[in-house]
């Protein structure tokens, strides 16, 4: 009986190991604004597998995993490139006559949301036929955009209005507008909270969705974006070449980790439990192990790596 048990355990472990080895690698899709490309980087091998030509000056990106597509916003050619994630080629270019900044999508991947920087509006796009469903006027120079799954809210940061606007998914009705720090650029949201990186204030703002209270926390020089992983916030300090880590229980900074030059955006590689950061200054990505908060690797991506959005296929 005892032997049998051991055999079972060994079989389970072996299957587990096999499964882990065979599970497909996560990939980072990095928009390189200086060369009009997207680099696809294998996060297991750290190899750039492919560089895809997109429109002019690509910046924002969002990945629709179940639909197996990624959308890239090209600010200068004023269009969106649709990338097929099975073949890794551009299958469609959607003319917007607008300046697409931030991109995101709803939970069931039926709609794509895009901020239009110069025209101060957001687009709602059908992800099946890529038709524009709605345009909604918002505050000045809308930048970051994110989707809150708990409340089904679309949240945006308006850089030149110093505000955050919260819209309902169903009616695209303005639920609330809240003032934050100066020049909010990156925004993210999870559970009961929204976070913005305030570039000119060297701070982040935390918004509590249950009572609309806000809290400002000082970080480094010119913070660009902020995301939450487990009980911590990670903030790119673009002019300090590092990230701040903030404990969400106490809302205090607990650590700074060096990155490449001019870090801008960040996302999580869930499979390997790592943080990936795009570095505009050194044309690269930094990869940080979330177990011990140590730098593992810096990988050259392409000129002016930015990747504003959920740039990892998890």
């Amino acid at each position: 009986m005892y032997k049998f048990f051991i055999v079972i355990v060994i079989v389970i472990l072996a299957l587990g190991a096999l499964f882990t080895m065979n599970s497909p690698p996560n990939k980072a899709f990095i928009t390189n604004q200086g060369e009009d490309t997207v680099s696809i980087i294998n996060l297991d091998t750290f190899q750039v597998e492919k560089r895809i030509k997109v429109g002019k000056k690509p910046l924002g990106i969002t990945i629709l995993k179940n639909k197996s597509i990624a959308l890239v916003g090209n600010v200068e050619s004023q269009d969106l490139s649709v990338i097929d994630l099975k073949k890794n080629v551009v299958i469609k270019t959607l003319a917007l006559k607008a300046t697409p900044l931030g991109l995101t999508h709803n939970k069931d991947e039926t709609e794509i949301y895009v901020t239009d920087w110069f025209n101060s509006q957001i687009f709602v796009i059908n992800s099946m036929n890529f038709e524009i469903i709605k345009k909604i006027p918002v505050g000045k120079t809308p930048s970051g955009i994110a989707f809150n799954e708990k409340y089904s809210f679309i949240v945006i940061s308006n850089r030149d209005s110093n505000s955050v606007e919260i819209y309902t998914e169903k009616e695209m009705r303005l639920e609330k507008k809240i003032m934050v720090g100066k020049h909010p650029y990156g925004i993210s949201t999870e559970g009961d909270y929204i976070y913005t990186a305030n570039v000119y204030d060297d701070s982040i703002t935390v918004i509590n969705l249950t009572n609309w209270q806000t809290k400002e926390i000082k970080v480094g020089d010119h913070p660009y974006n902020v995301i939450k992983i487990n009980d911590q916030l990670f903030v790119t300090n673009s002019l300090d070449d590092n990230i701040s880590i903030i404990d969400t229980k106490t809302f205090t900074e607990i650590l700074k980790i060096p990155t490449g030059e001019t870090p801008e955006n960040l996302w999580v590689d869930k499979k390997n439990n790592r943080l990936v950061i795009s570095n505009w200054g050194s044309d690269s990505i930094s990869i940080i192990n979330l177990h011990d908060m140590k730098n593992i690797k810096e990988v050259k991506s392409g000129l002016q790596s930015r990747a504003f959005g959920d740039f990892i296929l998890n």
């Binding site: 200086g34 910046l59 600010v75 300046t99 120079t141 030149d160 505009w280």
Partner: peptide, 13 residues
């Protein structure tokens, strides 16, 4: 005055 700057930073390195 309303706009601080555009969406594409230029780089010299």
């Amino acid at each position: 005055q309303l706009f601080a700057h555009g969406p594409t930073p230029q780089k010299v390195q």
